[in-house]
Design a protein around this nucleic acid. Sequence first.
DNA 1: GGTAGACCTGACGA
DNA 2: GTCGTCAGGTCTA
Length: 283
Amino acid sequence: MSRYCTLHLEGDALPFDLDRTLSCGQVFRWEKKGHWWCGVLGQKPVLIRQEGDLLHFSGAPEEDISRYFDLDLDLEEILAGFPDDPILLQAIDSAYGLRIVRQPAWECTASYIVATFANIPGIQTRLKLLCERFGERIGDGHTAFPSPEKLAASPLCDIRSCRVGYRDKYLCGTAAILSADHGWEERIAALPYRDARRELLRLPGVGKKVADCILLFAFHRFEAVPVDVWIDRIMRTHYLEEDTRYSYDRIADAARQIFGPNAGYAQEYLFAAREMIPDMRKK
DNA sequence: GGTAGACCTGACGA
DNA sequence: GTCGTCAGGTCTA
């Protein structure tokens, strides 16, 4: 491991909370060992820790760290632009400094295909197995995320041995499509939100929720609002009429209407604070 | 365009 | 130890 560097957080880089950013459930491969978070950026093993306004790290150049954690984004402005809403304010207070990281598009896509209908510890186990089995060794016991080419060329039974269950064919199918479609990332990035989502929905294993996760976490389309069971619950019990039926799009549209153009960020704070937000159904 | 049922698996609590 | 429930949903009919 190379020498440590220190980044002084100031200006737009604040607020930033490394622990909240890496433990909120948006990424699955970072591991905390002692005070240090261990992870992989691209093909490089990275160590990183935060001490107040100082970010100590090794394994990657400062610009990669800054870009990954989106430290040029004026987060304060986004948070200040949300409505004066008690539930969201509580969520922001409890997760203050959480930033949506810039995930590599393929890794994000594959991760959220694996993440469907599963819980976070299970997702972490599966991704770890996939990386150990198919990822390139990059030193220090780390592996890069498996390439789409590698997964596309692997037998389904090998993929399934990573305990991904019925998602094996989705993962393999999407890997085959994307590995043959160079430039898909640029194309998605250039499309308006609705068109980009429509494109992603053509991939096997990618429904509305996963497409919104990809757009939010990899492409930073902050109007994308992934509606999972938790957000569904929170929106129904606190923002909508509880006994009415709502489709996925109606809930996402309602979130955009209530929280504005950065509703995806609001969603992430609500998700991070999900355990604290009362579930009216239990009353 | 909306709905119901099936679905791998593992974490977690009773 | 065992069992039931639930989980960052998608697909098919």
